[in-house]
Write a protein that binds this DNA or RNA. Structure first.
Lengths: 141, 141
DNA sequence: ATCTTTTCATTCGTATGCAAACGATTTTCC
DNA sequence: GGAAAATCGTTTGCATACGAATGAAAAGAT
């Protein structure tokens, strides 16, 4: 006799639940930092940490596709938060760096960003939060 | 004396890790079910479960915005997997239901979908998998 | 030193994802 | 029953996402 086939319930699948958890996170993000998208913030954060990097490199650091990265950088440049220049040592590379305005915006966004993380994990106890982050790390790319 | 400010590390934030875990999941999904997107599959799954539902209702069931849902349904209709009709009892509503082709495609997609869930959670032990799903449920919308 | 392979940035096409505004309908409430 | 509020589907605009193709430049191999 075959095992009773468990019904396939969309709501119980990892993918669906991860999507919902992420949706909630994005809503919280938009409330704390309305003027930046999560991707724009991620780019600013890495640029602040690394200084001048090539566009593709920044994409790798922030887990963004090259095509996606270009769009993000274009929009950040339009807002005046980043500046680009050709890499003298490699004519293919486009170096990206923070402007002064970009540094200021990022510095001002870090405290709200901490609050976003805190509120996103709010439904969990401290122990659960730590465990969740550990499990996520195992499931990351 | 103020507490030593922990540096803000993008890679340690929930949002960033959730995004990466989700990226990996989407890659796995595309490998197992190349002809359907996760959203299209979710819509088919709910339609299979619920029968005929209004477009907005389906959006709620699958955690999709009304504008997003319309796009998904349009594409599924174009492929011949769903059919739409006006709701006789409410002229505003657009009833959506699976076609025969839609039912077949969905039925054929369920086994790979189970494999997707399994592979996505693969890096975790059975105990960790259960815990992860529980924690996700607490963080869902 | 040339030939091959990579890498880099860009572009195109398709698919989410959501806010906001819209007209058309229902529902609600007095 | 009629005005006000809510719901439904649609459209527009903006911002990811990513595969695939392209041209230019650099790296590697022989």
């Amino acid at each position: 006799m075959p095992h009773a086939d468990k019904p396939y319930q969309l709501h119980d699948q990892v993918g669906f639940r991860m999507r919902q958890a992420n949706q909630r996170h994005l809503t919280i993000f938009a409330r704390y930092i309305p003027h930046l998208t999560p991707m724009q913030f991620a780019a600013l954060s890495k640029l602040d940490e690394l200084g001048a990097v090539s566009q593709n490199d920044l994409g790798r650091q922030t887990a963004m596709d090259a095509a996606t990265m270009k769009g993000v950088i274009d929009r950040l440049a339009r807002k005046g938060f980043v500046a680009t220049e050709a890499d003298p040592s490699d004519q293919r590379r486009l170096l990206v760096r923070l402007t002064e305005a970009g540094k200021d915006i990022y510095a001002a966004a870090v405290p709200p960003a901490r609050a976003i993380t805190e509120e996103t994990l709010g439904p969990l106890t401290a122990r659960e939060q730590a465990r969740f982050l550990q499990l996520l790390a195992k499931l990351a790319l």
